[in-house]
Design a protein around this nucleic acid. Sequence first.
DNA 1: GGTCTGGCCTTGTCTGTACATGTTCCCCTA
DNA 2: TAGGGGAACATGTACAGACAAGGCCAGACC
Lengths: 242, 242
Amino acid sequence: MAARYEQIAAELRDEILTGVHPVGSQLPSEAELAARYSAARGTVRQAVGILAAEGLVGSRQGARRIVLGGERSQSFAELHSFAQWARSQGHVVGGEVLGQRRRKAGPAESAKLGTAEVLEVLRLRTLEGEPVLLERTVYASWIAPAVEGLPRDCESVTQALYDGVGLVFAYGEHLIDAVSASSEDARLLGVRRGSPLLRQRRITTTQEGRPVEWSDDRYRAGSVAFSIRNSIGANPLARLAL
Amino acid sequence: MAARYEQIAAELRDEILTGVHPVGSQLPSEAELAARYSAARGTVRQAVGILAAEGLVGSRQGARRIVLGGERSQSFAELHSFAQWARSQGHVVGGEVLGQRRRKAGPAESAKLGTAEVLEVLRLRTLEGEPVLLERTVYASWIAPAVEGLPRDCESVTQALYDGVGLVFAYGEHLIDAVSASSEDARLLGVRRGSPLLRQRRITTTQEGRPVEWSDDRYRAGSVAFSIRNSIGANPLARLAL
DNA sequence: GGTCTGGCCTTGTCTGTACATGTTCCCCTA
DNA sequence: TAGGGGAACATGTACAGACAAGGCCAGACC
Protein backbone atom coordinates (compact mmCIF):
# COMPACT_ATOMS: atom_id res chain seq x y z
CA MET A 1 0.00 0.00 0.00
CA ALA A 2 1.25 3.43 -0.91
CA ALA A 3 2.26 5.91 1.74
CA ARG A 4 -0.36 8.34 3.02
CA TYR A 5 1.35 11.34 1.46
CA GLU A 6 1.48 9.58 -1.88
CA GLN A 7 -2.23 8.92 -1.74
CA ILE A 8 -2.90 12.56 -0.96
CA ALA A 9 -0.58 13.69 -3.75
CA ALA A 10 -2.35 11.35 -6.16
CA GLU A 11 -5.78 12.67 -5.18
CA LEU A 12 -4.68 16.28 -5.53
CA ARG A 13 -3.00 15.55 -8.86
CA ASP A 14 -6.20 13.98 -10.05
CA GLU A 15 -8.23 16.97 -8.92
CA ILE A 16 -5.91 19.28 -10.82
CA LEU A 17 -5.99 17.18 -13.96
CA THR A 18 -9.77 16.86 -13.93
CA GLY A 19 -10.26 20.58 -13.49
CA VAL A 20 -11.44 20.73 -9.87
CA HIS A 21 -8.49 23.10 -9.40
CA PRO A 22 -8.11 24.92 -12.73
CA VAL A 23 -4.79 26.32 -13.92
CA GLY A 24 -4.16 29.64 -12.21
CA SER A 25 -6.40 28.92 -9.24
CA GLN A 26 -5.32 28.57 -5.65
CA LEU A 27 -4.94 25.24 -3.91
CA PRO A 28 -6.58 24.84 -0.49
CA SER A 29 -4.28 25.78 2.37
CA GLU A 30 -2.22 23.14 4.13
CA ALA A 31 -4.43 23.44 7.19
CA GLU A 32 -7.58 22.82 5.15
CA LEU A 33 -6.03 19.82 3.40
CA ALA A 34 -4.78 18.44 6.70
CA ALA A 35 -8.31 18.65 8.10
CA ARG A 36 -9.86 17.12 4.97
CA TYR A 37 -7.50 14.14 4.95
CA SER A 38 -7.21 13.85 8.74
CA ALA A 39 -3.44 14.05 8.44
CA ALA A 40 -0.75 16.14 10.06
CA ARG A 41 0.41 19.25 8.27
CA GLY A 42 3.81 17.69 7.68
CA THR A 43 2.23 14.84 5.75
CA VAL A 44 0.29 17.26 3.58
CA ARG A 45 3.48 19.21 2.96
CA GLN A 46 5.14 16.04 1.69
CA ALA A 47 2.25 15.55 -0.70
CA VAL A 48 2.23 19.06 -2.16
CA GLY A 49 6.02 18.92 -2.23
CA ILE A 50 5.72 16.16 -4.81
CA LEU A 51 3.39 18.22 -6.95
CA ALA A 52 5.73 21.19 -6.67
CA ALA A 53 8.68 19.05 -7.76
CA GLU A 54 6.62 17.87 -10.72
CA GLY A 55 6.03 21.49 -11.65
CA LEU A 56 2.29 21.13 -11.24
CA VAL A 57 1.95 23.78 -8.54
CA GLY A 58 4.03 26.73 -7.41
CA SER A 59 4.84 27.78 -3.86
CA ARG A 60 5.59 31.13 -2.27
CA GLN A 61 5.90 31.73 1.43
CA GLY A 62 2.87 33.57 2.73
CA ALA A 63 0.67 32.99 -0.31
CA ARG A 64 -1.56 30.09 -1.24
CA ARG A 65 -0.16 27.56 -3.66
CA ILE A 66 -0.98 28.17 -7.31
CA VAL A 67 -1.88 25.58 -9.93
CA LEU A 68 0.66 25.99 -12.72
CA GLY A 69 -0.13 23.43 -15.34
CA GLY A 70 -1.49 20.29 -16.79
CA GLU A 71 -0.07 16.82 -16.68
CA ARG A 72 3.46 15.67 -17.19
CA SER A 73 6.02 13.45 -15.59
CA GLN A 74 6.46 9.92 -16.76
CA SER A 75 7.86 7.34 -14.46
CA PHE A 76 11.58 6.72 -14.42
CA ALA A 77 11.03 3.31 -15.96
CA GLU A 78 9.13 4.82 -18.85
CA LEU A 79 11.95 7.19 -19.54
CA HIS A 80 14.64 4.55 -19.45
CA SER A 81 12.73 1.95 -21.36
CA PHE A 82 11.71 2.94 -24.87
CA ALA A 83 9.28 0.04 -25.01
CA GLN A 84 7.56 0.77 -21.70
CA TRP A 85 7.22 4.42 -22.69
CA ALA A 86 5.87 3.69 -26.15
CA ARG A 87 3.37 1.14 -24.91
CA SER A 88 2.08 3.48 -22.20
CA GLN A 89 1.52 6.09 -24.91
CA GLY A 90 -0.40 3.64 -27.00
CA HIS A 91 2.19 3.18 -29.73
CA VAL A 92 3.08 -0.01 -31.53
CA VAL A 93 6.70 -0.61 -30.69
CA GLY A 94 9.24 -2.79 -32.42
CA GLY A 95 12.97 -3.31 -32.39
CA GLU A 96 15.84 -5.54 -33.28
CA VAL A 97 19.45 -6.09 -32.38
CA LEU A 98 21.58 -5.33 -35.44
CA GLY A 99 24.94 -6.12 -33.93
CA GLN A 100 26.44 -7.30 -30.70
CA ARG A 101 30.02 -8.03 -29.65
CA ARG A 102 32.30 -8.07 -26.66
CA ARG A 103 35.42 -5.96 -26.75
CA LYS A 104 37.96 -4.24 -24.53
CA ALA A 105 36.76 -0.99 -22.94
CA GLY A 106 38.34 2.26 -24.05
CA PRO A 107 39.73 4.53 -21.35
CA ALA A 108 36.58 6.71 -21.27
CA GLU A 109 34.30 3.67 -21.12
CA SER A 110 36.41 2.06 -18.46
CA ALA A 111 36.19 5.19 -16.34
CA LYS A 112 32.42 5.43 -16.81
CA LEU A 113 31.54 1.78 -16.29
CA GLY A 114 34.38 0.60 -14.09
CA THR A 115 35.09 -2.54 -16.10
CA ALA A 116 37.88 -3.53 -18.49
CA GLU A 117 35.62 -5.40 -20.89
CA VAL A 118 32.29 -4.28 -22.31
CA LEU A 119 29.44 -5.58 -24.42
CA GLU A 120 28.54 -3.32 -27.33
CA VAL A 121 25.03 -3.56 -28.76
CA LEU A 122 23.46 -1.78 -31.71
CA ARG A 123 19.66 -1.69 -31.69
CA LEU A 124 17.11 -0.17 -34.03
CA ARG A 125 13.72 0.77 -32.56
CA THR A 126 10.51 1.44 -34.44
CA LEU A 127 7.19 3.13 -33.71
CA GLU A 128 4.24 2.01 -35.82
CA GLY A 129 6.78 0.18 -37.96
CA GLU A 130 8.76 3.34 -38.76
CA PRO A 131 12.43 3.39 -37.67
CA VAL A 132 12.75 6.11 -35.06
CA LEU A 133 15.63 5.42 -32.73
CA LEU A 134 19.13 4.03 -33.08
CA GLU A 135 20.67 2.84 -29.81
CA ARG A 136 24.39 2.25 -29.42
CA THR A 137 24.70 0.84 -25.94
CA VAL A 138 27.75 -0.34 -24.03
CA TYR A 139 27.08 -2.62 -21.05
CA ALA A 140 29.37 -3.33 -18.12
CA SER A 141 30.86 -6.82 -18.28
CA TRP A 142 29.09 -8.11 -15.16
CA ILE A 143 25.68 -7.69 -16.80
CA ALA A 144 26.79 -8.78 -20.28
CA PRO A 145 25.79 -12.47 -19.93
CA ALA A 146 22.22 -11.51 -19.08
CA VAL A 147 22.03 -9.15 -22.06
CA GLU A 148 23.49 -11.72 -24.45
CA GLY A 149 20.84 -14.18 -23.35
CA LEU A 150 18.02 -11.95 -24.57
CA PRO A 151 16.25 -12.60 -27.87
CA ARG A 152 17.26 -10.33 -30.76
CA ASP A 153 13.82 -8.82 -31.00
CA CYS A 154 13.35 -8.33 -27.25
CA GLU A 155 10.98 -5.41 -26.91
CA SER A 156 11.92 -4.14 -23.48
CA VAL A 157 15.46 -4.80 -22.35
CA THR A 158 14.80 -2.99 -19.08
CA GLN A 159 11.85 -5.23 -18.32
CA ALA A 160 13.70 -8.37 -19.38
CA LEU A 161 16.70 -7.61 -17.18
CA TYR A 162 14.42 -6.95 -14.23
CA ASP A 163 12.49 -10.17 -14.74
CA GLY A 164 15.60 -12.20 -15.46
CA VAL A 165 18.18 -11.10 -12.92
CA GLY A 166 16.28 -8.57 -10.79
CA LEU A 167 18.32 -5.66 -12.12
CA VAL A 168 16.81 -2.27 -11.29
CA PHE A 169 17.87 0.88 -13.10
CA ALA A 170 17.78 3.56 -10.41
CA TYR A 171 19.81 6.62 -11.40
CA GLY A 172 20.54 8.23 -14.73
CA GLU A 173 22.47 11.11 -16.17
CA HIS A 174 21.56 12.46 -19.58
CA LEU A 175 23.29 14.67 -22.08
CA ILE A 176 21.10 15.97 -24.89
CA ASP A 177 22.23 17.64 -28.09
CA ALA A 178 21.78 17.61 -31.87
CA VAL A 179 24.04 15.91 -34.41
CA SER A 180 24.15 15.20 -38.14
CA ALA A 181 23.27 11.73 -39.26
CA SER A 182 26.32 9.68 -40.22
CA SER A 183 26.16 7.36 -43.21
CA GLU A 184 25.25 4.43 -40.98
CA ASP A 185 22.68 6.46 -39.02
CA ALA A 186 21.11 7.64 -42.25
CA ARG A 187 20.91 4.19 -43.78
CA LEU A 188 19.36 2.55 -40.72
CA LEU A 189 16.93 5.33 -39.85
CA GLY A 190 15.91 5.96 -43.42
CA VAL A 191 16.91 9.60 -43.59
CA ARG A 192 19.42 11.52 -45.70
CA ARG A 193 23.02 11.76 -44.53
CA GLY A 194 23.62 14.98 -42.62
CA SER A 195 19.99 15.40 -41.61
CA PRO A 196 19.39 16.39 -37.98
CA LEU A 197 19.12 13.82 -35.20
CA LEU A 198 18.29 14.37 -31.54
CA ARG A 199 21.00 12.68 -29.53
CA GLN A 200 20.61 11.50 -25.93
CA ARG A 201 23.72 10.13 -24.29
CA ARG A 202 23.04 8.58 -20.94
CA ILE A 203 24.69 6.59 -18.21
CA THR A 204 22.55 4.48 -15.91
CA THR A 205 23.41 2.95 -12.53
CA THR A 206 21.85 0.57 -10.06
CA GLN A 207 20.48 1.48 -6.66
CA GLU A 208 23.91 0.85 -5.18
CA GLY A 209 25.44 3.35 -7.57
CA ARG A 210 27.09 0.72 -9.79
CA PRO A 211 27.18 1.76 -13.47
CA VAL A 212 25.29 -0.58 -15.78
CA GLU A 213 25.25 0.96 -19.23
CA TRP A 214 26.42 3.86 -21.29
CA SER A 215 24.35 4.61 -24.34
CA ASP A 216 24.24 6.90 -27.36
CA ASP A 217 20.64 7.11 -28.58
CA ARG A 218 19.75 8.96 -31.77
CA TYR A 219 16.19 9.91 -32.59
CA ARG A 220 15.01 10.89 -36.04
CA ALA A 221 14.13 14.60 -36.00
CA GLY A 222 10.42 15.22 -35.68
CA SER A 223 9.65 11.93 -33.99
CA VAL A 224 10.39 12.59 -30.33
CA ALA A 225 11.02 15.54 -28.01
CA PHE A 226 12.09 15.86 -24.40
CA SER A 227 10.12 17.86 -21.90
CA ILE A 228 11.29 19.34 -18.61
CA ARG A 229 9.61 21.51 -15.99
CA ASN A 230 11.71 23.54 -13.64
CA SER A 231 11.48 26.40 -11.17
CA ILE A 232 13.58 28.59 -8.93
CA GLY A 233 13.25 25.95 -6.25
CA ALA A 234 13.99 22.89 -8.35
CA ASN A 235 16.19 23.03 -11.40
CA PRO A 236 17.22 19.66 -12.77
CA LEU A 237 18.19 21.04 -16.17
CA ALA A 238 21.64 22.41 -16.89
CA ARG A 239 23.22 23.85 -20.01
CA LEU A 240 26.72 22.80 -21.03
CA ALA A 241 29.10 24.28 -23.55
CA LEU A 242 30.76 21.74 -25.83
CA MET B 1 21.08 34.17 6.49
CA ALA B 2 20.40 30.85 4.87
CA ALA B 3 18.27 28.23 6.57
CA ARG B 4 19.95 25.68 8.78
CA TYR B 5 19.21 22.82 6.42
CA GLU B 6 20.69 24.78 3.54
CA GLN B 7 23.89 25.34 5.48
CA ILE B 8 24.12 21.64 6.24
CA ALA B 9 23.43 20.77 2.60
CA ALA B 10 26.11 23.20 1.48
CA GLU B 11 28.67 21.74 3.88
CA LEU B 12 27.90 18.20 2.80
CA ARG B 13 27.99 19.16 -0.87
CA ASP B 14 31.35 20.74 -0.29
CA GLU B 15 32.65 17.65 1.47
CA ILE B 16 31.52 15.50 -1.45
CA LEU B 17 33.05 17.78 -4.07
CA THR B 18 36.35 18.02 -2.21
CA GLY B 19 36.62 14.27 -1.82
CA VAL B 20 35.96 13.90 1.90
CA HIS B 21 33.19 11.56 0.77
CA PRO B 22 34.45 9.96 -2.47
CA VAL B 23 32.10 8.70 -5.16
CA GLY B 24 30.79 5.29 -4.17
CA SER B 25 31.34 5.77 -0.46
CA GLN B 26 28.68 5.93 2.20
CA LEU B 27 27.47 9.14 3.77
CA PRO B 28 27.29 9.28 7.59
CA SER B 29 23.91 8.21 8.93
CA GLU B 30 21.23 10.77 9.67
CA ALA B 31 21.71 10.24 13.38
CA GLU B 32 25.45 10.93 13.13
CA LEU B 33 24.90 14.04 11.07
CA ALA B 34 22.22 15.26 13.45
CA ALA B 35 24.64 14.88 16.33
CA ARG B 36 27.48 16.54 14.45
CA TYR B 37 25.40 19.58 13.50
CA SER B 38 23.34 19.64 16.71
CA ALA B 39 20.17 19.56 14.61
CA ALA B 40 17.05 17.45 14.63
CA ARG B 41 16.91 14.45 12.32
CA GLY B 42 14.19 16.13 10.27
CA THR B 43 16.46 19.05 9.53
CA VAL B 44 19.24 16.73 8.39
CA ARG B 45 16.75 14.89 6.18
CA GLN B 46 15.84 18.16 4.49
CA ALA B 47 19.52 18.75 3.80
CA VAL B 48 20.28 15.35 2.31
CA GLY B 49 16.97 15.58 0.45
CA ILE B 50 18.42 18.50 -1.49
CA LEU B 51 21.51 16.53 -2.40
CA ALA B 52 19.36 13.58 -3.48
CA ALA B 53 17.25 15.87 -5.69
CA GLU B 54 20.47 17.18 -7.24
CA GLY B 55 21.46 13.62 -8.01
CA LEU B 56 24.55 13.86 -5.85
CA VAL B 57 23.59 11.04 -3.49
CA GLY B 58 21.27 8.07 -3.69
CA SER B 59 18.91 6.77 -1.01
CA ARG B 60 17.55 3.33 -0.19
CA GLN B 61 15.52 2.49 2.83
CA GLY B 62 17.56 0.53 5.29
CA ALA B 63 20.96 1.22 3.72
CA ARG B 64 23.30 4.14 4.16
CA ARG B 65 23.19 6.87 1.55
CA ILE B 66 25.67 6.49 -1.30
CA VAL B 67 27.64 9.25 -3.00
CA LEU B 68 26.75 9.08 -6.70
CA GLY B 69 28.62 11.75 -8.49
CA GLY B 70 30.35 15.00 -9.05
CA GLU B 71 28.92 18.46 -9.40
CA ARG B 72 26.09 19.69 -11.52
CA SER B 73 23.05 21.88 -11.23
CA GLN B 74 23.19 25.46 -12.34
CA SER B 75 20.88 27.98 -10.82
CA PHE B 76 17.52 28.63 -12.41
CA ALA B 77 18.67 32.12 -13.38
CA GLU B 78 21.67 30.70 -15.21
CA LEU B 79 19.46 28.41 -17.20
CA HIS B 80 16.99 31.11 -18.18
CA SER B 81 19.52 33.75 -18.92
CA PHE B 82 22.00 32.93 -21.65
CA ALA B 83 24.20 35.81 -20.54
CA GLN B 84 24.29 34.88 -16.86
CA TRP B 85 25.07 31.29 -17.77
CA ALA B 86 27.81 32.18 -20.22
CA ARG B 87 29.47 34.62 -17.87
CA SER B 88 29.43 32.14 -14.99
CA GLN B 89 31.20 29.67 -17.30
CA GLY B 90 33.85 32.21 -18.20
CA HIS B 91 32.69 32.83 -21.76
CA VAL B 92 32.67 36.12 -23.63
CA VAL B 93 29.05 36.71 -24.44
CA GLY B 94 27.52 39.02 -27.02
CA GLY B 95 24.16 39.57 -28.61
CA GLU B 96 21.98 41.87 -30.62
CA VAL B 97 18.31 42.42 -31.38
CA LEU B 98 17.80 41.83 -35.11
CA GLY B 99 14.11 42.58 -35.23
CA GLN B 100 11.31 43.63 -32.95
CA ARG B 101 7.65 44.35 -33.57
CA ARG B 102 4.26 44.28 -31.94
CA ARG B 103 1.55 42.22 -33.49
CA LYS B 104 -1.70 40.42 -32.73
CA ALA B 105 -1.29 37.10 -30.94
CA GLY B 106 -2.16 33.92 -32.82
CA PRO B 107 -4.59 31.54 -31.15
CA ALA B 108 -1.81 29.32 -29.77
CA GLU B 109 0.13 32.30 -28.46
CA SER B 110 -2.95 33.82 -26.95
CA ALA B 111 -3.69 30.59 -25.12
CA LYS B 112 -0.12 30.31 -23.86
CA LEU B 113 0.41 33.93 -22.80
CA GLY B 114 -3.11 35.03 -22.03
CA THR B 115 -2.89 38.28 -24.00
CA ALA B 116 -4.33 39.39 -27.32
CA GLU B 117 -1.26 41.35 -28.38
CA VAL B 118 2.37 40.27 -28.21
CA LEU B 119 5.86 41.64 -28.75
CA GLU B 120 7.98 39.53 -31.07
CA VAL B 121 11.75 39.79 -30.76
CA LEU B 122 14.50 38.13 -32.80
CA ARG B 123 17.90 38.00 -31.07
CA LEU B 124 21.24 36.56 -32.11
CA ARG B 125 23.62 35.52 -29.33
CA THR B 126 27.33 34.89 -29.61
CA LEU B 127 29.99 33.13 -27.56
CA GLU B 128 33.57 34.33 -28.06
CA GLY B 129 32.25 36.27 -31.01
CA GLU B 130 30.85 33.19 -32.77
CA PRO B 131 27.09 33.12 -33.43
CA VAL B 132 25.67 30.26 -31.38
CA LEU B 133 22.04 30.89 -30.55
CA LEU B 134 19.04 32.34 -32.37
CA GLU B 135 16.19 33.38 -30.08
CA ARG B 136 12.69 33.99 -31.37
CA THR B 137 10.83 35.25 -28.32
CA VAL B 138 7.24 36.38 -27.90
CA TYR B 139 6.49 38.51 -24.83
CA ALA B 140 3.11 39.09 -23.20
CA SER B 141 1.82 42.60 -23.84
CA TRP B 142 2.00 43.71 -20.20
CA ILE B 143 5.78 43.30 -20.16
CA ALA B 144 6.32 44.59 -23.71
CA PRO B 145 7.02 48.25 -22.77
CA ALA B 146 9.84 47.21 -20.45
CA VAL B 147 11.36 44.99 -23.15
CA GLU B 148 11.10 47.70 -25.82
CA GLY B 149 12.95 50.07 -23.51
CA LEU B 150 16.05 47.86 -23.46
CA PRO B 151 19.09 48.67 -25.60
CA ARG B 152 19.51 46.57 -28.75
CA ASP B 153 22.71 45.01 -27.49
CA CYS B 154 21.47 44.35 -23.96
CA GLU B 155 23.47 41.38 -22.73
CA SER B 156 21.09 39.94 -20.17
CA VAL B 157 17.41 40.58 -20.70
CA THR B 158 16.57 38.61 -17.57
CA GLN B 159 18.85 40.77 -15.47
CA ALA B 160 17.61 44.00 -17.08
CA LEU B 161 13.97 43.15 -16.48
CA TYR B 162 14.70 42.31 -12.87
CA ASP B 163 16.61 45.55 -12.29
CA GLY B 164 14.12 47.64 -14.22
CA VAL B 165 10.69 46.43 -13.16
CA GLY B 166 11.49 43.77 -10.54
CA LEU B 167 10.29 40.95 -12.78
CA VAL B 168 11.31 37.51 -11.54
CA PHE B 169 11.20 34.47 -13.79
CA ALA B 170 10.10 31.67 -11.48
CA TYR B 171 8.78 28.69 -13.43
CA GLY B 172 9.67 27.26 -16.82
CA GLU B 173 8.60 24.50 -19.13
CA HIS B 174 10.96 23.29 -21.81
CA LEU B 175 10.56 21.22 -24.95
CA ILE B 176 13.78 20.03 -26.52
CA ASP B 177 14.21 18.53 -29.98
CA ALA B 178 16.29 18.74 -33.12
CA VAL B 179 15.38 20.58 -36.34
CA SER B 180 16.92 21.47 -39.69
CA ALA B 181 18.19 25.00 -40.12
CA SER B 182 15.87 27.14 -42.24
CA SER B 183 17.32 29.60 -44.73
CA GLU B 184 17.10 32.39 -42.19
CA ASP B 185 18.54 30.22 -39.39
CA ALA B 186 21.40 29.18 -41.62
CA ARG B 187 22.23 32.71 -42.74
CA LEU B 188 22.23 34.17 -39.23
CA LEU B 189 24.05 31.33 -37.49
CA GLY B 190 26.57 30.86 -40.26
CA VAL B 191 25.77 27.23 -41.03
CA ARG B 192 24.48 25.45 -44.11
CA ARG B 193 20.75 25.23 -44.73
CA GLY B 194 19.39 21.92 -43.43
CA SER B 195 22.19 21.40 -40.94
CA PRO B 196 21.14 20.23 -37.47
CA LEU B 197 20.11 22.66 -34.74
CA LEU B 198 19.23 21.92 -31.12
CA ARG B 199 15.88 23.56 -30.45
CA GLN B 200 14.63 24.54 -27.01
CA ARG B 201 11.10 25.88 -26.87
CA ARG B 202 10.19 27.26 -23.48
CA ILE B 203 7.47 29.14 -21.71
CA THR B 204 8.32 31.11 -18.59
CA THR B 205 6.04 32.47 -15.87
CA THR B 206 6.28 34.71 -12.84
CA GLN B 207 5.98 33.59 -9.23
CA GLU B 208 2.24 34.20 -9.43
CA GLY B 209 1.98 31.85 -12.39
CA ARG B 210 1.48 34.60 -14.97
CA PRO B 211 3.07 33.75 -18.33
CA VAL B 212 5.76 36.17 -19.43
CA GLU B 213 7.36 34.82 -22.57
CA TRP B 214 7.27 32.04 -25.10
CA SER B 215 10.49 31.40 -26.93
CA ASP B 216 11.96 29.26 -29.70
CA ASP B 217 15.72 29.07 -29.17
CA ARG B 218 17.95 27.35 -31.72
CA TYR B 219 21.53 26.39 -30.91
CA ARG B 220 24.12 25.57 -33.51
CA ALA B 221 24.95 21.87 -33.25
CA GLY B 222 28.12 21.18 -31.33
CA SER B 223 28.00 24.37 -29.32
CA VAL B 224 25.73 23.55 -26.40
CA ALA B 225 24.16 20.50 -24.76
CA PHE B 226 21.61 20.02 -22.01
CA SER B 227 22.29 17.87 -18.99
CA ILE B 228 19.77 16.23 -16.65
CA ARG B 229 20.11 13.93 -13.66
CA ASN B 230 17.20 11.78 -12.64
CA SER B 231 16.35 8.82 -10.47
CA ILE B 232 13.50 6.52 -9.54
CA GLY B 233 12.53 9.02 -6.88
CA ALA B 234 12.77 12.19 -8.93
CA ASN B 235 12.21 12.23 -12.66
CA PRO B 236 11.83 15.69 -14.17
CA LEU B 237 12.52 14.51 -17.69
CA ALA B 238 9.79 13.22 -19.97
CA ARG B 239 9.78 11.94 -23.53
CA LEU B 240 7.11 13.06 -25.96
CA ALA B 241 6.14 11.73 -29.35
CA LEU B 242 5.65 14.41 -32.01
C1' DG C 1 31.62 -24.44 3.39
C1' DG C 2 27.15 -22.76 2.53
C1' DT C 3 22.76 -21.26 4.13
C1' DC C 4 19.46 -19.50 7.29
C1' DT C 5 17.99 -16.67 11.03
C1' DG C 6 17.70 -13.10 14.21
C1' DG C 7 19.07 -8.73 15.93
C1' DC C 8 20.84 -4.18 15.03
C1' DC C 9 21.24 -0.28 12.19
C1' DT C 10 19.40 3.05 8.90
C1' DT C 11 16.11 5.20 6.26
C1' DG C 12 10.96 6.03 5.49
C1' DT C 13 6.61 7.69 7.34
C1' DC C 14 3.72 10.25 10.48
C1' DT C 15 2.27 13.09 14.34
C1' DG C 16 2.17 17.37 17.03
C1' DT C 17 4.00 21.73 18.37
C1' DA C 18 6.13 26.24 18.07
C1' DC C 19 7.83 30.18 16.00
C1' DA C 20 9.55 32.92 11.78
C1' DT C 21 8.52 35.15 7.62
C1' DG C 22 5.97 36.72 3.91
C1' DT C 23 1.17 37.85 1.69
C1' DT C 24 -3.38 39.53 1.50
C1' DC C 25 -6.92 42.40 2.44
C1' DC C 26 -9.83 45.22 5.14
C1' DC C 27 -10.39 49.24 7.78
C1' DC C 28 -9.18 53.51 9.35
C1' DT C 29 -7.28 57.91 8.49
C1' DA C 30 -5.76 61.98 6.14
C1' DT D 1 -10.45 58.63 -2.68
C1' DA D 2 -5.73 57.31 -2.01
C1' DG D 3 -2.65 55.60 1.17
C1' DG D 4 -0.87 53.50 5.58
C1' DG D 5 -1.30 50.26 9.41
C1' DG D 6 -2.26 46.13 11.14
C1' DA D 7 -4.68 41.76 11.93
C1' DA D 8 -5.47 37.38 9.92
C1' DC D 9 -3.70 33.99 7.23
C1' DA D 10 -0.35 30.97 4.72
C1' DT D 11 3.86 28.89 3.98
C1' DG D 12 8.81 28.03 5.70
C1' DT D 13 11.78 26.25 9.29
C1' DA D 14 12.90 23.53 13.26
C1' DC D 15 12.32 20.37 17.06
C1' DA D 16 11.11 15.91 19.43
C1' DG D 17 9.30 11.42 19.50
C1' DA D 18 7.37 7.02 17.72
C1' DC D 19 6.86 3.18 14.79
C1' DA D 20 7.42 0.72 10.14
C1' DA D 21 10.19 -1.38 6.68
C1' DG D 22 14.19 -2.85 4.64
C1' DG D 23 19.41 -3.77 4.52
C1' DC D 24 23.46 -5.72 6.76
C1' DC D 25 26.12 -8.81 9.31
C1' DA D 26 27.49 -12.16 12.51
C1' DG D 27 26.60 -16.28 14.69
C1' DA D 28 24.17 -20.67 14.61
C1' DC D 29 23.06 -24.57 12.14
C1' DC D 30 23.15 -28.14 8.55
